[in-house]
Amino acid sequence: MTTATLSPTHTVTRPRSSAARTWHYFIHSLAAMLRDWAFMAFIIALPVTMYLFFAGIYGDQEASGGVAVAAVMMVTMATYGGLGAAMNAGAVIQSERSSGWFRQLMISPLTPSGFVTVKVATAVCAVIPALLAVFIAGIIRGVRLPLETWLATFGVLMVALLPMVFLGLVIGLWFKQQTATAVTTLTMLALAMIGGLWFPVDMMPGWMQPISKSLPSYWAGRIGMWPVIGGEFPWRGVLIIGIWTLGLLVLGGLGYRRAVRTSRR
């Protein structure tokens, strides 16, 4: 390669392992999301405000099992916050992918699957502040739980909300960018409302209850409440969320193939 000697011959040498470089990309994506104050305010302020408002009205009543409504509502509003964070962060993945920036990103050692992995991980991280913010609001409102209950609630909610990142991603894949934002918001509101995250499902008309109980949002809320109110673990919810996850992965795969066919990548 005698014809191709460089004038600046000293280059930075990095380990050949792609893990370190993918981690670098993850850290940058995460920092970019945290700096997006409008997005962070949206995913934190809305559930916190709604929690403080509803808990102010009903919070002092007692729910089934002798637990204060303020505590149950804290979990369902945290679920709602996490749902919004996951779906919106999921939708952002597709908007970045369909913008020309993705093409520039692909002229680097980053692979398409590396991109999606990092972006899904970033979206999952968006759920954390949404949950924590509502938990803190709960503490301020006087909710007191043992440490292991806090940790268990946080843990099961994170897992139960993970598929909602794919829901955001799927909406991004199947709708145009302008409509995707509206569809994401509407879907999120429907899932929250019908899934009983704002009002208990018992308050809804009887015909709606089977619909509610087929939604992943309802079961995410139920699973999140389990460490707080105890009783039998809602295994049925694991099944239903599992079915939704499979369905979303199939839709995602089809949407991705369609996107590859219609836009040049």
Partner: peptide, 19 residues
């Protein structure tokens, strides 16, 4: 994002980049 952040992000992805 800023130009500087963008360049730092992309710089970290390459194997043997220029300084």
């Amino acid at each position: 994002t800023t130009v500087g952040r963008l360049l730092r992000m992309m710089h970290g992805l390459h194997l043997n980049p220029l300084p």
